[in-house]
Amino acid sequence: MEVQPLLILLAEDDDGHALLIQRNLERAGIANQIVRVSNGQEAIDFVHCQGRHATRNADRPLLLVLDINMPRLDGIEVLRQVKADESTTHIPVIMLTTTDDPREVQRCYELGCNVYVTKPVDYDAFVDAVRRLGMLLQIVKVPI
């Protein structure tokens, strides 16, 4: 069976942040395809191949990078739904957000997020964080 390349789904409502994340992931050498959606509902639709994303290739392994503060469904709700559904619970989820409120962090880990990353304001730290994310993506083993 052919190993399909990992698809990164970036759910981020801030266009600037999305652009910065994509660019820096590329600079960090992540060549995987990145699909960006700007709200939680669209992320859920993508995961379940429904709505606008009904025609996407359902066989490709996914990795979710979720912001928390998003319209319609927030990142935590997306995380909860993905981890609560047996068919999607295996999908690795990275929370990447400006919120470093320990309550939120705690909640995300309780809901089953794999990694929680705070977006630092300091640009170097931000780049560093995205670079680490890239390295993380390289070592994450996704079940096929």
Partner: peptide, 23 residues
Amino acid sequence: LIPNERNCVHGSSTAFDLVGGRR
């Protein structure tokens, strides 16, 4: 207001350290 903050992992570096990242 925040229960069990001490038990939380917060901040980017700590989160990454969990998976063996390095600066």
